[in-house]
Each structure stands twice: as C-alpha cells, then as structure tokens.
Write a protein that binds this DNA or RNA. Sequence first.
DNA 1: GTGGTGTGGTTGACGGCGCAACCATACAGC
DNA 2: GCTGTATGGTTGCGCCGTCAACCACACCAC
Lengths: 180, 180
Amino acid sequence: MTVTEPVARPLSPRDARLAPWRAFLEAHARVSRRLDEELRAEHDLSLAEYDTLLTIAWSPDRRIRMRTLADSILLSKSGVTRLIDRLVADGLVERRTCLSDARGAEAVLTKAGLDRLRAASRTHLRGIDDHFLGAMDPADAAAVERAMRRVSERVGGGDAGVLGSWGPAERPTDRPADGS
Amino acid sequence: MTVTEPVARPLSPRDARLAPWRAFLEAHARVSRRLDEELRAEHDLSLAEYDTLLTIAWSPDRRIRMRTLADSILLSKSGVTRLIDRLVADGLVERRTCLSDARGAEAVLTKAGLDRLRAASRTHLRGIDDHFLGAMDPADAAAVERAMRRVSERVGGGDAGVLGSWGPAERPTDRPADGS
DNA sequence: GTGGTGTGGTTGACGGCGCAACCATACAGC
DNA sequence: GCTGTATGGTTGCGCCGTCAACCACACCAC
C-alpha cells in the first residue's frame, strides 16, 4: 500500500516491457557460460570456484568462515562444503578449524590457490572486459550497476549488502602481491 | 619483477569497473531464484519449464521442433529432451513426430499446458514487475535492455564458441602467453 | 554444573543439466 | 538404387547443486 503500484494492469505475455527481462536472462546465460568455458579451458576452474577463491583472497588473512562464504557467493551450506572439498583436493585451499568457535571451519587460501587465482584473474578479467563491459558504454554500465543493485536490494531474500559494499579502498588484507 | 605492463590497462581484481559485473551476477542469482520459488510454490513449474511452455505457446500452431526449442531457451539437446519428458509426464505437452522430417520430434502444447501457462503467467509476470522492472526507472530499464542485447550479440553469435572459436589471436591484447 | 534451544558444518538422497556415444533419418554424389 | 556425410533426438554417465537429516558445539536459563 505504501508502495506505488507498479502497473495498473497485469503484464501481458507479449508486453514490450518484458524485453529487458528476457534480454537480461539471455545475456546472463550466454556470458556466464562463455566466461566459465574460458576459465575451465585455461585454468581448470569453474566460475563458482573462481569467485570462491576471490572471496577468500579478499578476506582478512585470506581465510573465511564457511557460513560467511556461503552468504557471499550465494550458495547453500552444503554447496559450499562440496565446493571447498574440490578446492582442497586440488590443494588450492586448506580447511582449518576455527579458533574462536569449535563448531566452525575456515577455508584458508594456500599459496597454490593464490597463484592459481592470480593466473586465472588475467583470463577472467579480460573476459569480463571483452564480453560484458565492452558491450556497453560507461553510462549504460552505470545504469546497469544501479539497476542491478536495486534489484538485489528489492528481492532481498537475505542480506542484500553482502556483495554490495565492496569498494576500492575497502580494507582487507592487501590483495595478492601482484606484479602490476 | 616479471611485470609486463600491458598497453591497455588490464582490470585489476579490485577495479571499480568490476562493480557492474558483480552486481549483475548477484541480481541474477537473487531474482531468478526468487521467481523460480514463486513459480514452484504456486504452480509447480520451474523457471525453465515456464520459459519452455511460453516458447511453445508463442510458436506457430503451438508446436516447435526440439532443436529450435533448444536454441531458444539456451539448453543442450539432452536438456530439452528431459525437460520435455517432464512436461509430457505432467500432461502439459505432447511429443509428436515431425511430419516433414521423420527424424524430428515436435513438442505440442496441450490444453492443460496452455491453462497452466496462463495461470502461471499471472504469478510470473507480476513477479517480474515486482522484483525486476519495479526496481528500475524506465530509463534504466532501457539501458539495461540495450546493454544486455549487446552483450548477447557480442558473446555469442550463437553457441558456436563452445571451445576453440576463441583463440589467442582473437585479441591482440597483452597476455604474456602463459608459462613465460 | 544440567538441560534446552540455536547455529555451523557435513553427509546422503536426489534432481537438473551437459557431454559424448549412439541410432535413425535426411541429403548429397554417383 | 547405394554410399558417405550431416543433422535431430535419446540415452548413459558424471558433475554440481539443493534439501533434509544429523552431529557437535555455543549460549542462555536455572
């Protein structure tokens, strides 16, 4: 009631306003698939694994609680357990018990994990630039970002700010001592 | 220092230009999950199933070749086979042999399928309006649509690029051929 | 302390999807 | 007609993810 009614009539299945939604779905399917393929081909990492390594790398001390990780990458608890299992099997992260909470487990990035992440970043960031950002001018990119943030906030479903607050000077332990 | 400072500055892992990309990923995960839940709860349909029914409904005669369907909804051939299996089991579509091509199969919408689609549409279109379109003003929606279309075009003139269609020569950018 | 409740994480069962192998048919070329 | 190649669709298998059940521990009340 406090909200302005979005539409007076229900959307028709053919309503032109569906266009942004369908374009969004298609673009996501195509671009995420493409980036996943590139990552797998060059670095044997899935998109989810890459995001996981990145999230750990950004965390203080390059370690993170499983639960926090699940919230960050929008995966279920069991999904995280299994994803970390794979990364552990590959030697990219280690599983440590949490010092301050005996129930807890933490995922810690290994040197191999950091190296792999750095290598993959070159591929991945270039891919994002080529396939995603490169397709839009700065104004549209800003609009996309703004719209996407608001979608996340509105849908909520959980804490919408988990990923939403990362910024240039955001803190954590420095980023990997990258050459550049 | 193995630094090879590329001419065009590569994205840094923390580059602010990543913001639109990550916002995009998060928004997709949240909103598609939400819409999927709503559809399942109210109409026992997944988002993919809904899209499939809709695609069939939009096709001439409400029937469509499997291959065409696969291209439309961006699913593999086997994925389509199984998705249609489920819809057939639910009585929402029928599988017919193609008259003009004995190899082919067509999916045809049943009356039950049409009814289910119509019912689900009310839920779904309202959801899109509430969770997606409602989060952005018309100008941003237009920008999103424009950007998303360009992303799809750029990435993939089709699924062709499975592997191998993108090679090192495709981009003359930096990338110190690995190993170096 | 002891008991009750909440939370972190793992495991088992299961489902959706992709890939590759496979069969059937179409469509040359002869 | 026959043969070789391309294409449509299904099936076997494996990966990856969720959900629900479960255990271990935290934390509060007493």
